[in-house]
């Protein structure tokens, strides 16, 4: 302040142009309003650090996360032989059953949820448990529409590692409305595994990795090659014959099987 007083007592200071005065005494002004300005820059700095931290952490943690939740690049899947070595459905029922019911499905698709919870138990009772047919489930996550479908498919294969694919399949479809709407369903998937008594560490280790991403990707590719457009797509086949597409209802499947058995 003392220095300022001396400055303004200089004779002739009033005749200095505004521009020159500001240039000359600009630093003095900052010093005067210094406390407030300093406080402002501290607040601005804190907001900057916090913002960079939050946005940086969000982007960085996603980038570094080993959890694979989308199809992976795989060479050679255009070759049918190679594709069939990787693509793999999950089977239920007697492996020697003459008829095979094949489903291509997406865990996040409501239609598949309806099929699994309403038609599935009836199919099991009429065809699978009686040994008339076996059921083969292939992943076909519609990743452009359903953001968690790929991860859910991988989670189901992680449960398959512990021989609980079908209970996990049922639980995923039953709880579909819940995990479909959350931002990150991984912790819910872990909860469901825990509910089924799976080894939690093993399941989490599988989920937070790229395990089974190759199978799910290959199953999707198989679906594309079969020109599957939507889910659920149901086919019935006898022996090594080409699958016959049927309506995803109990009646549709009955009709398809009847036609196969009659040799049509």
């Amino acid at each position: 302040m003392k220095a300022c007083v001396r400055l303004f007592h200089k004779p002739g200071v009033g005749r200095v142009s505004k521009k020159n005065r500001e240039r000359k005494y600009g630093s003095g002004e900052v010093a005067s309003g210094g406390a407030e300005t300093t406080k402002f820059y501290w607040i601005l700095g804190a907001v900057a650090v916090l913002g960079v931290g939050i946005v940086g952490y969000s982007v960085g943690s996603k980038a570094l996360s080993p959890t694979v939740s989308e199809p992976i690049e795989m060479a050679g899947l255009d070759d049918p032989d190679e594709l069939m070595q990787v693509a793999r459905g999950v089977m239920k029922g007697d492996p020697n059953a003459p008829i095979t019911i094949i489903e291509f499905a997406d865990f996040q698709c409501p239609g598949c949820g309806g099929f699994a919870t309403q038609v599935g138990p009836l199919l099991d009772a009429e065809f699978v448990e009686t040994g008339k047919a076996k059921f083969l489930y292939y992943d076909f996550p519609l990743v452009s529409m359903h953001n968690h479908a790929f991860l859910a498919a991988r989670a189901s294969h992680c449960a398959e590692d512990q021989e609980k694919f079908w209970p996990y399949h049922d639980i995923l479809y039953r709880t579909q409305p819940r995990w479909s709407t959350v931002q990150n369903p991984a912790s819910l998937f872990e909860d469901y595994a825990e509910d089924l008594g799976l080894n939690e560490d093993e399941f989490s280790g599988c989920l937070k990795s790229d395990r089974h991403a190759d199978v799910v990707t290959a199953n999707m590719q198989l679906g594309y090659q079969l020109q599957i457009q939507g889910t659920p797509t149901i086919m019935v086949t006898k022996g090594q014959g080409v699958g016959r597409r049927v309506t995803a209802t109990l009646e549709g499947i009955r009709e398809g099987i009847a036609l196969l058995q009659s040799g049509e």
Partner: peptide, 9 residues
């Protein structure tokens, strides 16, 4: 004299 010059931002 100070008022205009020393006013904080």
């Amino acid at each position: 004299l100070e008022r205009p010059l020393l006013r904080p931002p």
